[in-house]
């Protein structure tokens, strides 16, 4: 029993196994869908899968960075929608897109900063701090800007919306381009930047990171501001694509869980310290293929939720089995 596990995990403790299981399942799904579902195995559908998963990948990058640092950002979707709302209000009022973007960027950075301040300085658990800020942001925006409504429509003719939902060059849509940029930025942060190395250190052993003199507070700020930026980016892409900002994305909660699902399925343990961009891609690949295949088979959204829920449970059970509880998790908790 132990042998095949140690064989695969020579590099580190049980990090790669879940990743390989998920990859194998994805490949199997692709084969099954190709054989049974009409129109799955076409170049056009591959493009659809790619552009449909752009905002999920962007969000997952933010969440992955947070989780690697042994945090959790439950305000990710609230920030995404709030960012899109702020941007839309300025665009609909005919302000220049660059100014709208800068103002929104600053506002969302502030939310990320507030999260980080609560977590690093006030020392509130990340789960509670971000849950509270998610509710606060959602409430504030619905109250002040939407006046209790759920939807905010974007003018389809605005050049910013046209740009965000169009192509940056033939064959490369803006969402996919932004996705690639975010992936590259995440890789840069995690691999080359001092903050990235500190993120791994904090996730692996927070007390050791603190005692070694690493700037844990500053790094927490970097982490949550980065997450807020990815949320904003995803918000712009998805609202431009659908022509509206919809607060029900926050209130029904499924998107948030889908993002966590991607991260966990990709093989990034919730206790942090491990994971890379590759894990995000592995996780998204499974969810995107599953989602696309189920849509092509005309599954209802309820049925899709049910199946995704099942996948999440299996993934978490597998994660627990492959990364068993130890004294470390007992002292710091699971999240």
């Amino acid at each position: 029993m132990a042998d095949w596990k140690t064989m695969i995990n020579r590099g580190g403790p049980n990090t790669k196994l879940l990743e390989y299981v998920v990859m194998a399942v994805t490949v199997a799904l692709v084969v099954v869908f190709s054989l049974t579902v009409d129109g799955f195995a076409t170049l056009g559908n591959a493009g659809v899968i790619l552009s449909n998963s752009a905002s999920l990948v962007i969000l997952s990058c933010g969440m992955a960075v947070v989780i690697i640092s042994r945090g959790l950002d439950l305000s990710l979707i609230a920030v995404m929608v709030a960012g899109a709302t702020t941007f839309s209000v300025f665009i609909n009022a005919d302000y220049p897109a660059s100014m709208a973007f800068l103002v929104t960027l600053a506002a969302m950075a502030l939310v990320g900063l507030a999260n980080a301040w609560l977590i690093a300085y006030v020392e509130i658990p990340a789960m509670l701090a971000t849950l509270a800020s998610a509710m606060l942001v959602t409430g504030l925006f619905r109250f002040t800007i939407l006046r209790g409504e759920f939807m905010l429509l974007l003018s389809k003719s605005s050049p910013a919306v046209v740009f965000l939902s169009g192509n940056i060059m033939p064959g490369l849509s803006t969402p996919v381009a932004l996705m690639l940029v975010t992936l590259a930025a995440t890789m840069l942060l995690l691999r080359a930047m001092s903050a990235g190395r500190t993120i791994y250190a904090m996730g692996d052993n927070f007390q050791a990171a603190r005692l070694s003199g690493l700037p844990v507070r500053t790094t927490t700020i970097v982490v949550y501001v980065f997450a807020a930026f990815t949320a904003l980016c995803a918000g712009l892409v998805s609202s431009a694509a659908s022509g509206a900002v919809d607060f029900r994305t926050v209130t029904n909660g499924t998107l948030l869980f889908e993002v966590i699902l991607v991260v966990v399925l990709g093989g990034i343990p919730l206790r942090g310290g491990r994971g890379s961009v590759r894990n995000i891609i592995v996780g998204v690949a499974l969810i995107a293929v599953l989602r696309n295949g189920m849509t092509l088979m005309n599954f209802t959204s309820q049925m899709q939720d049910l199946l995704k829920g099942l996948v999440l449970i299996i993934a978490i059970v597998a994660d627990n089995y492959l990364n068993p509880r130890d004294t470390e998790t007992d002292t710091v908790g699971d999240l």
Partner: peptide, 23 residues
């Protein structure tokens, strides 16, 4: 408990100590 980063490499552990000096 609070000495090293167990899943990181030897070079990362020592390198992080050095990096910490620069804050």
């Amino acid at each position: 408990l609070d000495g090293f980063f167990e899943s990181l490499s030897v070079s990362d552990n020592i390198g992080l100590g050095w990096l910490a000096k620069f804050g």
